[in-house]
Amino acid sequence: MKNISNGLNGRIRRFVRGGRIRPARAFIGFFAQLLLGSALMTQFSPAIRAEQDHSSGPVVVQPGAPGQPTKTLPASTMGKLPPRSQAEVDFMQGMIMHHAQAVEMTAMIPSHTGNKGLRLLGARIRSSQMDEIKLMKRWLAVHGEPASMEMPGMPGMDKSGHPMPLMPGMLTPQQMDALRKAKAADFDHLFLAGMIQHHNGALTMVKDLFDTPGAGQDAEVFNFATDADNTQRAEIKIMNTMLDKEFPEEKR
């Protein structure tokens, strides 16, 4: 693993002649945009209709809606991507912030509780959310976008200079304080209730993404959001069962 990591850095550094990884990322982003730009450009160029060739050579065709004729496209046709949606970028940036809180919450577990079941659950949530944070950062890097929606150089501020709003389901500073101060069973309870709230927020974010016109069309974002949704639903189910079992007096 280590070799690989450094191999990459080494390559990037060489490529940008001694630059740090950030310029390299910006460079990657530039190319991503360049290509997307060109894809869009081709899209607007007038479609040339070639005569359909039934004798020899491959054809490129594009069917119409049911009952409509099929068009023949020029042999030079290249693949195009659906339009980029700012909502996809916002979703990835927002979900990084959202996931970061889950990671912060799970980091408290070892010092706050001895509950074995909760420790295992926390380890799994931590592992999958860290994994996904990495995935989202990669996607943003490749698309030339920053990993955070914060204003550069102004942590905690959004791009309009207002304090960053919390993502859906994120625990308020007060809730986080209460969690930090709780121990043992009290912590277990607050953690489970908090993480269920937190995960439900993620489901809201996924729903909002797919409910936003034009969003979720990127194949990678589609697959990630679909997977995050499935995973977190399953975890909510597990956490509800734990709550029922360990805090049966609690009527939710």
Binding site: G7, N9, R11, V103, M130, R138
Partner: peptide, 27 residues
């Protein structure tokens, strides 16, 4: 093909590090 020289790298113990290279495969 160039063989990049290995040196110390962010380890799995520093997962929250902002600069951790997101392109490295999971351990």
């Amino acid at each position: 093909a160039p063989s990049p020289s290995p040196s110390a790298s962010p380890s799995a113990q520093q997962p929250d590090d902002e600069d951790r290279n997101p392109f490295v495969p999971e351990a």
